[in-house]
Amino acid sequence: NGDNAMKILIKLLSMGAALAAGAAARKALEAGWRKSTGNEPPKDAGNLRNPLPGVLVFALATAASGAVIQVVTQRLGRKAALRLGRDPREV
């Protein structure tokens, strides 16, 4: 069915956009961390050489950017569904 194929295509495009945006945001966060602190980002929370405040700030920034990206890509996917005459709740 063409409707099912379109729903799958919209979902795949939304997922691809979310993954690409997430990777770009992660790189930007890491570069920003390096530039502002002069150190590598504390990606390994279990590494005791990384100070706890830095680990927490980096984790919070990563989580916040991920949440924003998820919301934006979901909304864009639903807007695309509306433009194509589909029910946005199905995306």
Rank of each mutant, 00 (worst) to 15 (best):
A59V: 01
A59T: 05
A59E: 09
L60T: 13
L60F: 12
L60G: 15
A61T: 00
A61Y: 07
T62C: 03
T62M: 05
T62A: 09
A64Q: 11
A64Y: 05
S65N: 10
G66H: 04
G66N: 11
A67T: 00
A67F: 05
V68D: 09
V68I: 09
V68P: 04
V68N: 07
V68K: 13
V68G: 10
I69Y: 06
I69N: 01
Q70W: 11
Q70S: 12
Q70M: 11
Q70G: 04
V72H: 00
V72S: 03
V72C: 10
V72Y: 01
T73A: 05
T73E: 03
T73R: 03
T73K: 00
T73Q: 03
T73N: 04
Q74G: 02
Q74L: 11
Q74T: 01
R75V: 00
L76F: 00
L76S: 02
G77P: 01
R78D: 00
R78T: 03
K79Y: 12
K79F: 11
A80T: 06
A80F: 10
A80D: 09
A81S: 05
A81M: 12
A81P: 04
L82Y: 07
L82I: 09
R83V: 13
R83L: 14
R83D: 06
L84D: 08
L84V: 07
L84R: 15
G85W: 14
G85I: 03
G85L: 15
G85A: 15
G85E: 13
R86C: 09
D87T: 02
D87L: 08
D87G: 13
P88Q: 08
P88T: 04
P88W: 09
R89S: 15
R89A: 15
R89L: 14
R89P: 15
E90M: 13
E90I: 07
E90V: 07
